[in-house]
Design a protein around this nucleic acid. Sequence first.
DNA 1: ACACGGACTGACCGACCGGTCAATCGAAGT
DNA 2: ACTTCGATTGACCGGTCGGTCAGTCCGTGT
Lengths: 203, 203
Amino acid sequence: MTAARRHDPEASRAAILASAQALFLDRGFAGTSMSEIAKGSGVTKSLIHHHFGSKEALWREVKRSRFADYYEQQMSLFAETGTAPQLIRRSMEVYFRFLRDNPDTVRMMSWLQLEGDHDCTDMVAELRDAGIERIKAAQDAGILRQDVPAPFILMTFLGLVQAWFHEPSALGDDARRDVEADAYLDSAWRIFAEGVSTPARSR
Amino acid sequence: MTAARRHDPEASRAAILASAQALFLDRGFAGTSMSEIAKGSGVTKSLIHHHFGSKEALWREVKRSRFADYYEQQMSLFAETGTAPQLIRRSMEVYFRFLRDNPDTVRMMSWLQLEGDHDCTDMVAELRDAGIERIKAAQDAGILRQDVPAPFILMTFLGLVQAWFHEPSALGDDARRDVEADAYLDSAWRIFAEGVSTPARSR
DNA sequence: ACACGGACTGACCGACCGGTCAATCGAAGT
DNA sequence: ACTTCGATTGACCGGTCGGTCAGTCCGTGT
């Protein structure tokens, strides 16, 4: 967190960015002051302005760097994923685990949506389109039902996974929640799998 | 918005509350200043302190009043809902329409979650327990599958509906989004209905 | 007619906000 | 040795923050 050497701009930048990220994602942009960020990174306010220009620019930088991780993870997921059913299952698993291991990302997404951010929307759109592409392929292959539009299938997929993280914990015990997480993932998958499979008109 | 008569404390309180709600839900607690609320409600800062005591207390009051609507709507929904399949469908429809018609409530929920609010958690828990009760009854009646825990079925239900509102609009056209909303609700229901029905082991 | 008390105001408070600036520091180039 | 230049600092700026307070306004009880 604190800058190691006196004149190491890279380390200073990194320390500032780390402190800013922690505080912005915890309390939001408006709820965080430059002085707090400075204190948290062991440098002065002035240096932050020297490196990033303004509070807004720093926030933009935090969003950019944090979103890059998410984008890369998602894109690599799409690259390795095919259309086979077990790959869709695995895709849900990977997405779920990513959100579980990166709660900061979940919080950032919430902040972005609340403040009506426009810096990341094009990247979001890109990811969404790639996902829709995959789903359409799976529909053509007869793996997914074709009577529901692909974008909506994607939304249900995302909604089912995110549900676990958007909901207030309520069950205080964190360890217990970790155990429950896998159980939820399993349940969500079972419901999703039945729900999106090509309807077997049996009843 | 603006207080009507000079000495009408009820109207003043209401005007302040309305202005505070609009601003808090739009920009968040930290992003809203007392002066803005005062300007928006046509009274002075001092009067706000006279009626509500502090900024935090005002925010608490906004949350309380806004959450009460949500709580009442949900509870009345539970009261009228039985366990028959078409009632579950109707329940999803009502919940969806409520969120669609009360975007403020959606935003408030997001703020509550981000700031780790504890004022409303007990009411949330109450609603959740009531919902789980209903789902368990439906499971006992053989309408919902029993191999998935009731709390998880509730979460998927909520997640599927909320997915439509949590996702960044991206499709700029609001009118078009309204049309799409019904289509999404229909799709989400179809997926949910297939996913949570008692598995017909036919394939 | 008058006193009382709550509604309401405008001036004011210290603290903190984001941001600026001149000055210092220190490593690298010559 | 001297220059140069980015990194870094602390003092400082005007403005706004949430909050206070003394006092005015005005309907009501007596």
